[in-house]
Computed example of a mutant assay.
Amino acid sequence: MVIGVILGLGISLPVAAATGVGVVTGVAQGVSHQQKENEKAANANPESRTTKFYIDVVIEDEGSRSRGRGEVLHDSIVVVRDDKLWIEAKNRATGQPRREDSHPFTGFYLMYPDENRSPAERGLVTTIQKDPPMLNWIYVDNETFELKYSNRSGSIAHKVGPWDWTDEFEDSSITLNEWEGFLAVEEDMYRDENGNPRWALYYDWNDDGLKGRKKGRRTMEISLKRRLVENQEKNIFGVERNGNIGVTGFKTTREI
């Protein structure tokens, strides 16, 4: 039996003895919450929150797109690397990161499994590697306001939501806490293969331009656009394109 492996969302990953296919506690709880949300909004919300997508970076101000930082950042793509979310150049032909060893954000919305959060918050998850396709939660670091990723244990103490989008179109913008407050921040100490500073993704939680946190670094306001993953397949939860979470099975008992 070929069984896929997805780790990183729940507290533990028990194995079902009869079938060899386990259930990830965190995923199961999140899916249950999400199905209820989808049922409530079935008529007004034709696009399920659990459809997988990439994230493209857009500079909304037309005048800034063609010069300086805007020229570098416009129509780039968000990738995950070293526990953080970064912005990298896009291969125009494939829509994937130009750097071949980079893993693009490839995720979806899922209710965050935390009984102490009331009301429950919609979280955001992404695969962080191709093989096995491990899932982690996206969160905003409480101290730095960087966008990072981790398992449930590493994310639960930070800002994990609520995530959403601006409308029902495929290229709708991502929101957090009901606002598009995302900033690209130039990380001078981290450089790409050409020696240029890399741009990391931050959230301006206090709406003050990262006052006290910017530390002289250059920043730019950006918009994050959803781009749906094509040819999504059915998974063990029985959901297809409208609700595809990309899960094929589990075979571990280890907590992560």
Rank of each mutant, 00 (worst) to 15 (best):
E121D: 03
E121Q: 07
R122G: 08
G123T: 03
G123P: 04
L124G: 04
T126V: 02
T126W: 01
T127C: 04
I128W: 01
I128G: 01
Q129P: 09
M134V: 14
M134S: 14
M134I: 13
L135I: 11
L135G: 07
W137G: 13
W137K: 13
Y139C: 10
V140Q: 04
D141W: 00
N142A: 14
E143S: 08
E143H: 07
E143C: 06
E143W: 03
E143L: 07
T144S: 05
T144D: 03
E146P: 15
E146A: 15
L147W: 11
K148Q: 07
Y149T: 15
S150A: 15
S150V: 14
S150K: 15
N151T: 13
N151R: 12
R152A: 14
G154T: 06
G154V: 06
I156Q: 15
H158Y: 03
K159I: 12
K159E: 10
G161D: 04
G161I: 07
G161Y: 02
G161S: 05
G161T: 06
W163R: 04
W165A: 13
T166W: 00
T166Q: 03
T166V: 06
T166G: 02
T166Y: 01
D167C: 05
E168I: 02
E168M: 01
F169A: 11
E170C: 12
S172T: 14
S173F: 12
S173Q: 14
T175G: 00
T175H: 00
N177W: 08
E178W: 13
E178M: 12
E178F: 12
E178Q: 13
W179V: 05
G181L: 05
F182R: 12
F182I: 13
L183Q: 00
V185E: 00
V185S: 02
V185D: 02
V185L: 00
E186V: 10
E187Q: 10
D188L: 04
D188C: 03
D188P: 11
Y190D: 14
Y190S: 15
R191T: 13
R191A: 07
R191M: 08
D192F: 06
D192A: 01
N194C: 09
G195N: 07
G195V: 05
N196I: 06
P197E: 01
P197Y: 02
R198Q: 08
R198P: 12
W199N: 04
W199F: 04
A200P: 06
A200Q: 03
L201T: 02
Y203A: 00
D204Y: 00
D204H: 00
D204C: 01
W205G: 03
D207G: 09
D207E: 12
L210D: 09
L210S: 09
K211L: 14
G212S: 06
G212E: 02
G212W: 05
R213M: 13
R213S: 10
R213I: 10
K214I: 01
K215E: 14
G216N: 02
G216D: 01
G216R: 02
M220E: 08
M220Y: 08
M220S: 08
E221T: 08
I222W: 01
S223A: 11
R226F: 06
R227Y: 07
R227M: 09
L228K: 11
L228E: 11
L228A: 11
V229Q: 03
